[in-house]
Write a protein that binds this DNA or RNA. Structure first.
Lengths: 225, 225
DNA sequence: GATCAGATAGCACGATCGTTCGTGCTATTA
DNA sequence: TAATAGCACGAACGATCGTGCTATCTGATC
C-alpha cells in the first residue's frame, strides 16, 4: 500500500502550509528574510519553547529590528504557525524522506527510526526534536497552533503504522502483530530517546534506543559493529 | 533486592528537598500557605511550564498578593526548585508508593505503570505528567532546576530497572531480557501515553498503553474485561 | 528612469515580568 | 501581657513582552 505512505507524507509536509493564507509576496529579499527568520525561530523554539520564543530575542539573533521582523507575520500566533510549518518541512526532509528510500515495510520502519536518531545526533536543533517539545508544551493550550502540532504528531504515528502494516503484509513481522500498538511503542521509544538525550546530552542513549528498536522489530543486530 | 527499591524511592522523594536550605519556619499558617502555593504551582506548571509559571498568575490563582507570595521563596528559581520538589512528592505518593505494595518483581513493574496511567486518567494535574513536560522544557536550560528534574527522571528509570532485575531473578521474565533496555522501553511507553493523552485528551490511548505494557511484559491480558 | 508595493527601521503604547522596599498584622513565646 | 519574628500587603522599580503607527528605503515593473 504505497499510496498510504505518500498520502501521509504529503499530509505531514503540507499540514501547516494550508493553515496560513497565501501572502502574495513579490520581492525575493523578503522571502529570503522570511526563510531565515523561520529557520532561526524553529531552532530557538526548541530551547525556549514556542511560547517562550519572543519577537525581541528572535530579531536580535537575526540582527534585525523587532518591527521589521514582526511585519512578516502580523501576530505572534502567525509566527508560531509558520514556525511549526517550517519545523515540519525540516522534519520531513531529514527524517521522513530519507526513510522512503528504504525498502517498503520493515526496511522503512527501521530507516525512519534511524533517521530520527541521526536527526538528534546531528543536532539539527539545539533542543532536540521540535515536535516532542512542542507537543508537551502546546498540548494544554487550545488553539490553531496546538492543532497543527497535534495533526503533525498524528500524521507521524500514522506513517509508522503504515510501514508496520506493509511489513506485516510482507511477513516481515508476525501476523499477530498489532500495527497500532507497534507504532505507539516506536513513537514511545523515539520520545524516550529525545527526552534522555536532551536531559543528559549523552549519545549513549541513542545507541540504546537503536538496540531497543532492532530488538523490538526482531532484527538480528548484525549492523551494530 | 528490596533494599534497592527503597533506596531509589527515598532518593526520588528527597531529591529536591535537599536542594533547598532549611528555612527555619516557626508559624503554622505560613507553612500551610506555602503548601497551598506549591500545590497550585505544580498544577499551573503543567499548563504553562516551569518557566511560563509567573508569580502574578500564581498569586492571582491563590487570591493573594505577588509580594506576599514572593516572600516565601526569595527568587523565582527557588520557587521552581520547591515546585519540582512538591511535584516529586506528589508523584512518589501517587505513582511509586502504590506500586511498592504489589508483589516484588513483575508485579511492581506492572503496578507502577498502571499507577502512572491512573495518575494521568485521574487528572491530578491538568497538563498531564509534571516531569514529562518539565524534562523537555528544562533540558535545554542548564541550572539547578534542570539538575533536579534530571535527577528525578533518572531515579524513576532506575526504579523501573530495579523492578526488572528482580523480575528476571525470579524468572518472571526471560533470562536474556535486558533491564536497561526494558526500563528504557517502559519509560518510552509512559512518555508516549502522556504526550498522546495531553495532545488528544482521549482516554483510549491509556487503554492502548496498558495493552502495550502487558504485551511487552508477556502478561496474558485476563484483566482486560 | 519614474512608479509603486513590499521590506525594514524607529518610536511609543499598555501590560506584564521578576524583584525590592516599607509597613502593618498576627501567631508564637517568654 | 509585652516583645519578637514571621507573614502578608500595596506601591513601585526597570526591563521586556506583543503590538501598532509612521517614515525611509529598495527591489520589481512599465
Amino acid at each position: 500500500m504505497y499510496d498510504r505512505s505518500c498520502y501521509v507524507v504529503n499530509a505531514m509536509t503540507d499540514i501547516a502550509d494550508r493553515t496560513t493564507a497565501a501572502p502574495r509576496r513579490k520581492r525575493a529579499d523578503g522571502e529570503r528574510t522570511r526563510s531565515a527568520i523561520l529557520r532561526e525561530a524553529a531552532s530557538l523554539a526548541t530551547v525556549d519553547g514556542l511560547e517562550g520564543l519572543s519577537i525581541g530575542n528572535l530579531a536580535a539573533a537575526l540582527g534585525m529590528s523587532k518591527s521589521g521582523l514582526y511585519a512578516h507575520f502580523g501576530s505572534k500566533q502567525e509566527l508560531q504557525l509558520a514556525t511549526v510549518a517550517e519545523a515540519g518541512r525540516i522534519f520531513a526532509a531529514e527524517v521522513v524522506e530519507p526513510a522512503l528510500a528504504a525498502p517498503a515495510g520493515l526496511g522503512q520502519l527501521l530507516a525512519v527510526c534511524e533517521a530520527f536518531f541521526e536527526h538528534l545526533q546531528r543536532r539539527t536543533f539545539p533542543g532536540g526534536c521540535f515536535f516532542a517539545g512542542a507537543a508537551l508544551e502546546m498540548g494544554t493550550r487550545p488553539g490553531p497552533v496546538k492543532e497543527a502540532v497535534a495533526a503533525f504528531q498524528a500524521a507521524f504515528v500514522d506513517l509508522l503504522r503504515g510501514f508496520a502494516v506493509t511489513a506485516i503484509e510482507q511477513h516481515e513481522l508476525p501476523p499477530g502483530e498489532d500495527p497500532d500498538g507497534l507504532s505507539f511503542e516506536l513513537n514511545g521509544i523515539i520520545l524516550a530517546a529525545d527526552a534522555n538525550f536532551v536531559l543528559h546530552g549523552n549519545t549513549a542513549v541513542l545507541d540504546m534506543a537503536r538496540r531497543v528498536v532492532r530488538r523490538r522489530l526482531g532484527v538480528t543486530s548484525d549492523a551494530s559493529a
